[in-house]
């Protein structure tokens, strides 16, 4: 009980500190400190309440138990990470985004295809595409190839739609300018329309990072070799070993955030000129 009360007191104190900090000048340090403090508070509150109220570990293990499990099973977690993220998600992401990009460039010269493909692409992007996982597992087998295939299908349409849209982003005046130089199609594509499309292309790339990881993990629910993050989660849930499940979730969260973060960083470098990045 004391644990729980202490945790709640900590929460109240930290929140008051955050309110105080956010009233002051918004320095770079505070911008980082405030969310960090909030995150720490959640962890303390979780730990305190679970310990203090004697919550059974098969319902919610405390963060300390998850951390201990994480530390003691790094080889397994690494093996699962390689299987699901590197082999499944990453290869599917590269193939899917790459082919969507190439198709977008190809249909760029045909307004007819654009008019036809864009609504279809938008439609498919809103569908529960993940449902195709059991079919692809059937076609490509249990190993990572089927996971990569699911990822390809999932990231393809968001990427296609974003790239096609991005390529229409240059304004009339800029295109007229290219015309006064009598620039040919490839010159105006390379020098004007592709750079102007970059913010949209990166939007597609960023959305796809999350989709890729989801696709690779969920596809394992429909069949996998005896390794992989999705496989581990389902089997450990079955054994009620929730600390291991949470450890896998931590891996997934770290991988997901890092993947997204890297794309966002590249975006920042490439589209430094865009008003949202200045």
């Amino acid at each position: 009980m004391i644990w729980a009360i202490a945790a709640i007191l900590f929460w109240v104190g930290a929140w008051a500190l955050n309110v105080y900090l956010s009233r002051g000048k918004l320095t770079k340090r505070n911008k980082f400190l405030i969310p960090l403090l909030f995150g720490v508070t959640i962890l303390v509150l979780w730990e305190g309440l679970v310990t203090g109220l004697n919550v059974s570990p098969i319902i919610l293990p405390p963060p300390s138990a998850v951390a201990a499990k994480f530390a003691s099973s790094i080889p397994i977690l690494w093996q699962d990470f390689v299987q699901t993220f590197v082999k499944g998600a990453l290869s599917g992401y590269i193939i899917g985004c790459g082919s969507a990009f190439i198709l977008a460039i190809l249909i760029d010269r045909s307004p007819f295809l654009q008019r036809g493909l864009l609504p279809v692409g938008n439609f498919v992007a809103a569908l529960p595409v993940i449902g195709i996982a059991p079919i692809l597992v059937m076609w490509f087998g249990f190993d990572w190839q089927s996971k990569a295939a699911v990822v390809v299908v999932m990231v393809f349409f968001p990427m296609l739609v974003n790239t096609v849209q991005g390529l229409t982003q240059s304004d009339h005046m800029q295109r007229d300018l290219m015309k006064t130089y009598s620039a040919n199609y490839w010159q105006s594509l390379l020098k004007l329309r592709l750079p102007a499309a970059m913010p949209f292309i990166f939007n597609g790339l960023k959305i796809s990072t999350t989709l890729a990881l989801i696709g690779a993990i969920v596809a394992e629910f429909f069949g996998s070799p005896i390794k992989g993050m999705g496989f581990r989660i389902t089997t450990e849930v079955g054994r009620l070993a929730l600390d291991m499940v949470w450890a896998e979730i931590v891996v997934a969260a770290l991988a997901g955030s890092a993947f997204y973060g890297i794309m966002a960083l590249i975006e920042k470098i490439v589209t430094f000129w865009h008003p949202s990045q200045r």
């Binding site: 005046m173 800029q174 300018l177 015309k179 009598s182 750079p195 102007a196 000129w273 865009h274």
Partner: peptide
């Protein structure tokens, strides 16, 4: 004339590429 690049054109807005 355009294909011979006979003129320079200045638009209402500068239309400079931000990148």
């Amino acid at each position: 004339a355009r294909e011979a690049r006979a003129y320079g054109y200045v638009f209402q807005a500068s239309g400079l590429y931000p990148w």
